[in-house]
Simulated assay, not measured.
Amino acid sequence: MTYTFDFMAVRHGLGVLFDGLLVTLELTVAANVIGLTFGFGLALLVMHRWAVLRWPASLFVEFFRCTPAIIQIVWFFYCVPMLFDVYLDAMTMGILALACNLTAFNAEAYRAAIQAVPRDYRDAGIALGLNGWQRIRYIVLPTAFRAALPVLVSNGIGIFQQTALVAIVALQDLMYMGKSLATESYRPIETFTVVALIYFAVSFPVSQLASWFEHRRDRLAR
């Protein structure tokens, strides 16, 4: 059987796909803002000497790192309203689910970077009379952030790709719009090829930027 490709139907639906892409980018940006911010705080809790703070933070990290993202999304959309009587719009639920997942992975990236900060840097802060918070703010955080940046960017790309999972709960992202267009046009191969190319067009430049940051960091470390 010979299959004849016809991208005309997809061409007419590009506007719909780009509407979905905007939703995907909104989910990605919001999740990354939350993940970058709370990931650092969570990393500090994971390394805290008090077990009452360390164990809950570690449990959060391990839960979201060791369970499939699709289950986390379904849990947020269906279990949270039923168990806690909390009803939020689909966009907010999607952002929270993705942000929790990204926060856990970023926390591990920050933790590894923080532990890699040379002891001499902290000793220098003490010698300058900086208190604990000031050492974290002016020495540990900038140094750790630079070291963790390639991993953080990679995690951000990963969460951009995982936004496709929210299509299962009818959030109208790029994947959801692609599925709808494929159903309407009866051209799933052409439609999902274009969808894949859109994901690639966004992810590839960012991945190259992450590689550039990593190479630049390695050059400065020499």
Rank of each mutant, 00 (worst) to 15 (best):
F204C: 07
L14N: 11
Y176V: 00
A210C: 05
S203G: 09
P150E: 03
T2L: 11
Y3M: 11
H215R: 15
V74R: 08
D123H: 13
T193Q: 01
T67Y: 13
W75M: 10
P81G: 02
Y186E: 06
R217E: 12
T193K: 00
I71Y: 15
V52Y: 14
T2H: 12
P81H: 04
A116S: 14
F60N: 09
W133S: 08
M91P: 06
Q115I: 06
V206I: 15
V16I: 08
A144V: 02
K179C: 00
P188A: 05
R54Q: 14
P118H: 07
S211I: 07
V86P: 11
Y186C: 03
W75S: 11
T92A: 14
F200L: 15
A167I: 01
P56V: 01
S203R: 03
A170V: 11
V74T: 15
M177T: 03
F7N: 06
P68Y: 09
A113W: 03
P188T: 05
V195N: 02
D218P: 01
W50Y: 14
L152W: 00
V206G: 08
I34K: 07
A104D: 03
A9F: 09
I189G: 02
Q115V: 08
D218S: 12
F77T: 05
V169R: 01
R11N: 14
L209P: 05
M8W: 13
R137A: 11
Y186V: 04
T163Q: 06
L174D: 00
A221L: 14
W50E: 10
G94Y: 09
P142F: 09
D85L: 09
R222N: 14
S185K: 00
V117S: 01
T37P: 12
Y186N: 11
D120G: 15
S185R: 00
I114E: 02
L96E: 04
F18K: 10
S58W: 13
A51G: 10
V86R: 13
F40N: 06
A167Y: 05
V151H: 04
I139T: 05
E108F: 03
F145L: 14
A107V: 04
L59R: 08
T103Y: 01
G156N: 01
A99P: 10
A148Y: 00
D89N: 15
L149K: 06
N106Y: 02
G129I: 04
Y199M: 00
F5P: 02
M93T: 13
V86D: 08
G125Q: 09
F200Y: 14
L96H: 08
V86K: 11
F63V: 13
A182M: 03
L96T: 09
L220D: 13
A221C: 11
A57H: 10
I157D: 00
M93N: 07
A90W: 05
I189P: 02
G132L: 08
A113S: 12
A167D: 04
A51Q: 12
N155M: 00
F77C: 07
T28H: 08
E62R: 13
L88H: 07
V33Y: 10
A104Q: 03
G35C: 07
V206S: 07
Q208T: 12
T191L: 01
V194C: 06
M177H: 10
R137G: 05
I73F: 10
I73V: 15
G132D: 13
T67K: 12
I136N: 09
E108S: 10
V117T: 02
Q162F: 03
M82A: 15
T37Q: 05
